[in-house]
């Protein structure tokens, strides 16, 4: 079988040479997954916050449903988004299939339940702790939620990282709705799938190393900027 050393070498060679195709693919991966996480935050945080504090019939069912949706298979999401965006589908006129936007939509659907479910847990725990204090400040529900979101910001950041990890690592959804079109919708994971199917295992694994390294870099960046923010706030 293939040598792991060869994969390291491939990865190293690609990075050192700043291979333009590699950069394009990495950039698109980042753009798609970070956009998806941002959209997921816009939807998931309010939903999570609402579920954390609101009490209404069917809430428990909704909480369980959203938690369960964390396990959505990417391929299924890809298929559903494909059927919606296909020219034959309801949203066909938008002409979004095989574009990065389609990939962002699919990944947003994958990531939103993760963000919402984890945010709900974080904010519910915080709310239990803060409830009396926030009542004493005479805050309305919205102002309370705003404070809780800010108080939970570091945990919520980790929530976003979990979502980012899911998005940047999945291939099933983006390959269906993006089509893995060279220079248009080809991202890290679809490239890895393609190179694997070409039998270029060393190259595929090398790209895998690069993907993990990038994920590591994004996480490190977030943790460092968080540490810097903490230092600034309490300097």
């Amino acid at each position: 079988m293939q040598d792991f050393a060869a994969s390291f070498f491939e990865a190293f060679r690609l990075v050192i040479s700043l291979d333009p195709d590699l950069l394009e693919v990495v950039w698109l991966s980042m753009r798609v997954s970070l956009s998806a996480v941002a959209m997921a935050a816009l939807v998931g945080f309010p939903v999570g916050a609402f579920l954390a504090v609101a009490r209404f019939p069917g809430r428990g069912l909704l909480v369980i449903t959203i938690s369960a949706l964390m396990g959505l298979p990417p391929v299924v999401v890809g298929l559903v988004v494909y059927m919606l965006l296909s020219s034959a589908g309801v949203l066909g006129p938008l002409q979004l299939l095989y574009t990065p936007t389609a990939m962002i939509i699919a990944q947003t659907i994958l990531v939103t339940p993760i963000v919402a479910a984890l945010a709900r847990q974080t904010l519910e725990d915080l709310h239990d702790e803060y409830r009396d204090q926030l009542v004493l400040y005479g805050l309305g529900n919205l102002a309370q939620l705003k404070t809780l979101l800010w108080e939970g910001r570091y945990s919520l950041l980790t929530t976003l990282l979990a979502g980012f990890g899911r998005a940047v690592a999945e291939v099933g959804a983006v390959i269906i709705v993006g089509g893995n079109i060279n220079h248009v919708t080809r991202v890290m994971t679809t490239t890895i799938a393609l190179e694997t199917s070409k039998g270029n295992l060393a190259l595929a694994l090398g790209l895998g190393f690069i993907l993990v390294t990038i994920a590591f870099a994004v996480n490190a960046l977030v943790f460092m900027s968080r540490a810097a923010a903490v230092r600034r706030a309490y300097a």
Partner: peptide, 23 residues
């Protein structure tokens, strides 16, 4: 401090919205 969060959200939304454009 909440301004930073809001600004982050706004910027990322713009990124997301424009990501598919310019084809």
């Amino acid at each position: 401090m909440n301004r930073h969060l809001a600004r982050f959200m706004a910027v990322s939304t713009v990124v997301a919205m424009t990501a598919g454009g310019a084809m």
